[in-house]
Design a protein around this nucleic acid. Sequence first.
DNA 1: AGTAGATTTGT
DNA 2: CAAATCTAC
Length: 475
Amino acid sequence: MASSDETSLVWLRDDLRLDDNPALAEAAGLGLPMTVLYILDEESEGIRPLGGAARWWLHHSLAALAADLESKGSRLVLRRGKSDAIVRKLAGQTKAGHIFWNRRYSQPERTIDAGLKDWAGENGIHASSFQANLLFEPWTIRTGAGGPYKVYSPFWRACMASADIRDPLDAPAALPEPAASGPGVPTSDTLASWKLLPTSPDWSTGLAETWEPGEKGAADRLADFLDGPVEDYGTGRNIPGTEGTSRLSPHLRFGEVSPFRVWREIRRRHPGKIPADVGIFRSELGWREFNWHLLYHNPDLATRNFRPAFDNFQWGRVSRSELAAWQQGKTGYPLVDAGMRQLWQTGWMHNRVRMAAASFLVKNLLTDWRIGEEWFWDTLVDADAANNPANWQWVAGSGADASPYYRIFNPVTQSKKFDADGSYLRAFIPELQGLEGKQIHEPWTAGADGYPAPLVDLAESRERALDAYQKLKDE
DNA sequence: AGTAGATTTGT
DNA sequence: CAAATCTAC
């Protein structure tokens, strides 16, 4: 029985937006005084703490979200600690009769959410969860035999053949007043007290110049991309020196834009047949869906080879200095180095270059993919629990529908092919500014002051990798 | 979503 | 003889 001072509680997590936010929309529709909560949880069992770049992003995204909520009459409550304890306590203090959230798909998070749903049921509180962050929930897409998919193409075909993708919801025009907790509204941590931003040194200058975290930044990025680059996506996405990709990944990671909104905006611009280039972009959203499908059905994707045969793989002993050279962009191979420096400076790396840089670490340096996965987790603004490990396993060949073992990128061939004019290399490697024409792809033939000599011989290290992978095949 | 080496094609 | 195409790993 609802009492007159009953309230609602919306718990936001990886959905830092007002647009197409089913949990928020449902709560707003109730009209009860409403608490909007975000929890920084680094304590619950199994939770993987955010990397440094993601912490920077989260700070700015929450600041933007708080301002957006306030402009509509609401307020963001920030709390830090164990999620289940905080939600239970706050629900009690605010006399919440209804709790709303949008679903998430990692094992530790699902365990917390399921526990809270049980607790709510036992305490007469209505807890409702919604589909908001994936177009297809991982358990709904099944093979003919009833199991999860292990190959991308049939997975995406099955998605496309399944039920229609729902329309996105508009952001609520206004939001209910904040719920009271005893004498006033619930206290909130200050964002600054979470110390998410780097100090001494502040390495975030390049990130701030590159990104606008928050819902407005996400919407602008989506519009800019769909109004131009997407029409030439098939080729444009491979040229790292241009703005040929959407750069939506961190916005999707933090839920500042809904995949349902992206889908609808594409459809709105192409009501008839979807052009091939636009279809390729949509299929990249499909890879995001596939990777979450994989994680849902394989919760230890970040630590365990998807293909158990790889448990016997003989990774090389990578020296501290070799790893540091890769991390710092000092391998002597311009495309790899430009990519690793772009990552360090901006928190992001072009996908074509990610493949080349990851291939170099895993195959030419024969490094366990988990080492690379951890570095990317710490330095990427867009790393999430599914896509980062799934993509590393794809490169290593240990994953589902993975790259074949003999696919070893040649960073010189790749940069000649995809950065022919060297504009990407020049943008991130000052030591190579002076090199003329094609010399920039092979600086050792010209000599460039301050730029390192190649860390390993490409042909030799390639043969070593092929031998190691061959051994695995022979077992 | 690859590379390298061999073979064929085209100017 | 360079570029496009084919093929095995």
